[in-house]
Design a protein around this nucleic acid. Structure first.
Lengths: 197, 197
DNA sequence: TAACCTACCAAACACTTGTTAGGGAAGGAG
DNA sequence: CTCCTTCCCTAACAAGTGTTTGGTAGGTTA
């Protein structure tokens, strides 16, 4: 008998893949079992419910992401460098947790009403603090344009990064760092205040 | 007896609202009926199926949107003005069909495999032609930066516009035109090639 | 008045869903 | 060998799903 404690993670990975492709509600437990090569009932040896699979997928991703954000924020960089680091970190996370990111994008909005998934709203709030705070700091420091609505800018930056998960495929032409660089180039040249008026 | 030929559209509007909020698969026919103030079975007097409601919502929206795009493209504007017009038109469409846009965003990816919803893939292709063509034209004309990956730029512009549907609420602080102006300001200052190197 | 149409309800249908209970095969430990 | 744990299967369950059928209130037409 193999020990296989990573069997659990392996099942979660295939589940995440199916969830991301079909949507959580449209995905049946039997479909996951098919993709994993076992029968539907057998999944319940590893997990108590379909919902707890989703829970584990999302919280594992968010834990890692928020830890990465905290590291960036603790580095004490300037506003512009912080934004650059946040974007790069985000694309690395998309590279590693593409499926989880796609699920989060699609389902979090209506999941966060459920008590079990309250932490999704918390995560959103911590995103907002990180991004919005950095933007405001940058506006005050003169790094970013002051003539834009800050909240609109925040949503703009946040969305431009995260929607990439809907088309990004690991192993493609561009590395996460390369994509981050191009995105930053596009975003910053619009956000950074011109040195010459 | 009231004639009420718009009863159909009224039902479609509430259905679209529920679909957008909960997701298509997560939405039950009884939930729609509840919101509309009748019983589940009664919906089948107006529509043959739940799927055909979705079909009608999406195709009505796409018809109007693509017609708007065609008008813009037929105007014979320059690349930059075309992009501006496309973005503005898109935000107007988001303003009018917010629910349909949200549904399209969430569900189209996995719906377009079904034969019935092939037109979704067609629509995506026409989007790509409109946006990507304009961008390439602009690069050739010197309106947009040439040092960026065009496909990446296309996805960037496209996504930044459409994700706005996930947070936009009509009747808010900003009009569609105002949001379009701010978005364009952010996007273009990054895409437009600098007049001075 | 009688026939008719519109818009709905009440009740059921077949089917799929997530989930559970009991059992069994395969290897490791004693 | 025997016990035990791990991992899976078989078979079923109750609840909920989209959908259909027959009926009916009430206004319109003749």
């Amino acid at each position: 008998m193999r020990p296989a404690p990573d069997r659990r993670r392996q099942l979660l990975d295939t589940a995440a893949e199916v969830f991301a492709a079909q949507g959580y509600d449209a995905t049946t437990v039997r479909r996951i079992a098919d993709a994993a090569g076992l029968l539907a009932g057998s999944l319940y040896y590893h997990f108590d419910s379909k919902e707890s699979m989703l829970d584990e997928i999302l919280s594992a991703f968010l834990d890692e992401l928020l830890a990465g954000y905290d590291t960036v924020l603790a580095a004490g960089l300037g506003p512009r460098e912080t934004i650059e680091a946040l974007v790069t970190e985000s694309f690395r996370e998309i590279d590693r947790h593409r499926a989880a990111v796609a699920i989060f994008q699609k389902e979090s909005r209506h999941l966060q009403d459920q008590p079990r998934f309250e932490y999704l709203a918390d995560a959103r709030h911590r995103f907002e603090t990180a991004w919005l705070g950095t933007l405001e700091r940058g506006v005050a420091a003169g790094d970013f344009r002051a003539d834009l609505d800050v909240r609109l800018t925040y949503r703009f930056v946040r969305d431009t990064v995260w929607v990439a998960a809907s088309w990004y495929r690991p192993g493609g032409r561009h590395s996460p760092e390369e994509i981050a660089r191009q995105y930053l180039s596009m975003v910053l040249e619009g956000i950074a205040s011109r040195t010459r008026t």
